[in-house]
């Protein structure tokens, strides 16, 4: 029953992180931002991770609705969970970056706002999951909410461009400008970090999916032993 792929995948992820972090710290400081630029190497990959995770949620939810295999419901929930974690980290690292560069932790910029909205949508997903006890119904309702919720991500993403075409926000251009003028070592470090985060997604997804499977098996066993106990007790009077 042991997951043979998990350990090598974890080791490769660790290796990628080591190489990526080495590049991230050895790359030259930015002309304008100095060492602050190094937040980029965790901030952008976290955001990328959460988008990969929400895409995963969408795909697994769709497969669940069509196949009704519990496995896909577990994977969809696992994918959402680690996606939410990474969205929180994206907002956190972003606000740490925003404070010294923009002067504030939070700006009502379209990209920040849409990220916060994605977080709310997927927190709602977990609230709904918590309210339904029957696993079949929980999986179905959660999948439906996840699919419609994921639609908001590309729509919001597009609306960023629509917004920008109308209102130019100087803070936003600062980031765009910095990224365009990035030197080769910076691009290298960012790419390795992106790869490391992508591998981390698959590693965490496997672990979380496996954990959910174990929890489910335990619950089923407990229920079964309770039923058996009731049978052995015969027609015991309810307390």
């Amino acid at each position: 029953m042991r997951d043979r792929l998990a350990r090598p995948l974890g080791l490769i992820t660790l290796l990628c992180f080591a190489v990526g972090l080495y590049f991230a710290f050895s790359s030259p400081p930015d002309v304008n931002q100095g060492n602050l630029i190094r937040i980029l190497y965790v901030h952008v990959p976290s955001a990328w991770f959460s988008y990969v995770a929400y895409t995963g949620t969408f795909v697994y939810s769709l497969i669940y609705l069509l196949s009704r295999k519990r496995k896909y419901d577990r994977l969809a929930a696992a994918s959402t969970e680690i996606g939410v974690l990474m969205t929180v980290l994206t907002l956190y690292t972003g606000s740490l970056w925003g404070r010294p560069t923009w002067g504030v932790y939070w700006v009502w910029d379209p990209r920040l706002t849409t990220t916060a909205l994605a977080l709310l949508i997927y927190l709602g997903y977990f609230v709904v999951r918590g309210l339904i006890d029957d696993p079949g119904r929980r999986g179905r309702v959660a999948a439906v909410i996840a699919i419609i919720g994921t639609l908001d991500i590309p729509v919001n993403y597009m609306s960023v461009y629509w917004w920008r075409s109308i209102h130019q926000t100087p803070t936003f251009q600062l980031i765009g400008g910095v990224r365009v003028s990035a030197a080769a070592p910076m691009v290298e470090a960012l790419l390795v970090m992106l790869l490391a985060y992508t591998l981390l997604y698959f590693y965490l997804l496997r672990l979380r999916g496996r954990l959910a499977e174990l929890v489910e098996t335990r619950e089923e066993r407990e229920l079964e032993s309770e039923l058996q106990g009731d049978l052995k007790g015969g027609m015991r009077e309810p307390q």
């Binding site: 909205l117 994605a118 709310l120 949508i121 709602g124 419609i148 919720g149 908001d152 729509v155």
Partner: peptide
């Protein structure tokens, strides 16, 4: 809680 985040656009 479910409607508002989706309906913001």
């Amino acid at each position: 809680v479910l409607i508002f985040p989706v309906v913001v656009p």
